[in-house]
Amino acid sequence: MSALLRVEKLEVVYGRAITAIQGITLEARKGEIVAVLGTNGAGKSTTLRAISGFLGLDDARVTEGAIHFKGKNLSNRPPYLITKLGIVLVPERDKVFPSLSVVENLSASVSGTGADRKRLEEMAFNFFPKLAELRGRTAGLLSGGERQMLALASAIVCGPELLLVDELSLGLAPVVVDDLAQRLVEIRNTLGITILLVEQNAAVALSIADRGYVLENGRVVLDGDAARLRNHPDIQEFYLGGAGERRSYRDVKQYRRSRRWYG
């Protein structure tokens, strides 16, 4: 099957000085859940921003490579047109409009009109029945988990073919994260949407993903089937917290230290 999204040898430079991504190549096929893993500063968010067209805001730009979606080159397209093409981003924070109610948040999303849209809205409420109970509630008063649900629901109403999820687990309790992860699988199964999941929490991401990429210092260092990645010794040691004695990474010491900090 051909790739829905193909990022090819992408290089992104911030402020003419810092190369955040140095030649990343990754692809997502239709109906896949693809996990992108990596620590802070590995280039995950930058990749997402490059795909969704928000680089310009941070004085960053693509210096090499290209991003193709359904065979179309995405460079120089404003964000709202990228959304209309079918790529919808669920951002890391500020993901709902706090002063709008739940229903209003959903109706702010742009997508087709009439029956099509109605179907999508119903679908969103089906995936997250809790939102139906909270219809009239102001989004600013929702809890973190409910906000994440609302963000996913609003994204679904946009009618995406590719859903980009930035840090599904950020600031959420493990129970809630597991639940949301299952919803993602459900969404993929029912709608046939491709999902690109960027995560720090490798355990959650790899548990639902079909394939995964591991980024480090702006490069892809590992990729493959989620099951294989789960069993890879490096992943076990550095991302899943397993024991190991390997020293194959240049920054092993730093990793060790950070692992101690994180507990």
Binding site: S52, F54, P78, Y80, T83, P91, F97, A108, S111, A155
Partner: peptide
């Protein structure tokens, strides 16, 4: 920003 992400 979010508005643009929602296709507005």
């Amino acid at each position: 920003l979010l508005a643009a992400q929602r296709g507005i």
